[in-house]
Design a binder for these strands. Sequence first.
DNA 1: GAATCGCATAAGTGTGTGCTTATGTGTTGG
DNA 2: CCAACACATAAGCACACACTTATGCGATTC
Lengths: 104, 104
Amino acid sequence: MIENDIFKALADPTRCAIFEKLASGGMNASALRQGMEISQPAMSQHLSVLRNAKLVREERQGRFVNYEVDPDGLALMAGWLAKYRAYWPARIDDLNVLLRDMDQ
Amino acid sequence: MIENDIFKALADPTRCAIFEKLASGGMNASALRQGMEISQPAMSQHLSVLRNAKLVREERQGRFVNYEVDPDGLALMAGWLAKYRAYWPARIDDLNVLLRDMDQ
DNA sequence: GAATCGCATAAGTGTGTGCTTATGTGTTGG
DNA sequence: CCAACACATAAGCACACACTTATGCGATTC
C-alpha cells in the first residue's frame, strides 16, 4: 500500500514544508535547510521518508545530492483521489483549473 | 493546516479501510465493524479522527449514528494536489477520466 | 422505569516516530 | 594525501498514537 506511505509522509508538517519548498524548484539538502531551523540529520531522515513515498527523488551531483519533486507520488495520490470522485462536490474551482490544464 | 489532519487521518491503514468502506455507502458504526476485527471504542476513536479531518460526517438517527463520506475533505485534498499540477505527468489515465467527469 | 442497546469518553499501556548527538562514507580542493 | 565538506546512518530519548478495559450517556424497548 504505497498510498499509505504517501499519507504518512505528508502527515508531518515539517516534511510537508520540505516538499512545498522543493516544489518551487529542485535543490540540495543544505539549500533546503536554509531558513528552516532543522538539523542536518533530521533533514536527511525526512528526505529519506519522502523518497520512499515517491514524493521526492534524488540525483547525485558531485558531493551534492540534488532533490526534486517526484511526479510518481503525486500521480499515485491523484489515482487514490480519483477512486472517490463520486463524492466530489459538483464544482470546485481549483479542480476545474486543474482539469482544464490536463485536458489542454 | 487542515490538510495536515487529512494526511494524518489517512496515514493509518485501519482508518483508510474505514473510509474506503464508507465510500461504498453510508452506514452506522456497528455496521462498519462487521468483518473488520476492531473493538467498538477503537472504531469510535477512528471515526472521531476522520470526522475532525472532514473526511467523514455523521448524522444521528435515533440511537444509531449514520456515517458517510464528507466531500469537504476530498475537496481540500484535491485543492492541495492542484497546487502541484506543474509536476504531474502529462498523461494519467485515472486523472483524465476524473477530469472528464468534472467537466461533464 | 428499568434493562438494553449504540456509541462516546476516560485512563492506562505498548509501540512508533521525530528529534538529538555521534560517527561513518564518499567527494572535492589545496 | 589529507582536510574540509555534503550527506547518510546509528543509537538513544521524549513524545505521540493506536489500542485496551472500564465506564458514562442518550435513546429505545419491554
